[in-house]
Amino acid sequence: MSKRGDAKKARRRKRLGGTRRVPDAIVAQLSAIPDGIVADLAEFDERITARDWTFDEEQSDDDYAVWFFEPSGAQVDDGLPVTSLWLDAAEDGAIVRVVLVGTTTPHPFTHAQLFEHLEAIETYRNGDPVPEFG
């Protein structure tokens, strides 16, 4: 399916089903990870979805938990059609990687750093100068 089709499908899912949370099946798959980390994942999900990020069930799997910021969506020639972030199970979700709409470069953040820069990430639109996250 095309990037545009994926974005349209995600918008429809959000409109029909409200804000998605990390499904129980994904949390169950993560049960091999220490309890504190799973609790952190649930807290992270609550915090991020409260800011209009959507959990991406299609892109998430045993290795990655992925969210996207639908208001950033754009038709792009290269890069992602929407700003996305993900946690890697191999890193116990300690690092949040963000790829801005229309780009392919991941920006790594700790959870604290992410929330310090989240407003700049959310206001970024395709074609804007990429913020400096120093």
Rank of each mutant, 00 (worst) to 15 (best):
M1P: 08
S2A: 12
K3L: 14
K3N: 13
A7W: 00
A7S: 11
K9G: 10
A10G: 05
A10P: 01
R11C: 13
R12C: 14
K14C: 15
R15L: 13
G17H: 10
R20V: 15
V22N: 01
V22H: 01
P23E: 06
P23Q: 04
P23V: 08
P23I: 07
A25P: 00
A25M: 06
A25W: 01
I26Q: 10
V27W: 00
A28K: 05
A28N: 03
A28W: 00
A32K: 03
I33Y: 04
P34L: 04
G36Q: 11
A39T: 12
D40V: 07
L41R: 04
L41G: 06
A42E: 07
D45R: 05
I48R: 05
I48W: 02
D52I: 03
D52P: 07
W53H: 03
T54F: 07
F55M: 10
F55G: 11
E57K: 09
E58K: 11
E58P: 02
D61H: 08
Y64M: 14
F68V: 13
F68N: 08
F69C: 03
F69R: 04
E70Q: 12
E70K: 09
A74K: 06
Q75R: 04
D78S: 11
G79F: 06
G79E: 09
G79V: 12
L80P: 01
L80V: 14
T83F: 03
S84C: 12
L87M: 13
L87D: 06
D88F: 01
A89L: 03
A90V: 11
E91R: 12
D92T: 07
D92W: 01
G93A: 14
A94M: 14
A94P: 00
I95T: 15
V96P: 05
V101Q: 03
V101A: 11
P106M: 08
P108Y: 00
T110R: 08
A112H: 04
Q113W: 00
E116K: 15
E119L: 05
A120K: 09
A120G: 10
I121F: 06
I121A: 08
E122F: 02
T123Q: 09
T123R: 14
T123V: 14
Y124A: 10
Y124L: 07
R125S: 10
R125E: 07
G127K: 02
G127Y: 01
P129L: 13
P129A: 15
V130L: 15
V130E: 13
V130W: 01
P131T: 06
E132G: 08
F133N: 09
G134L: 15
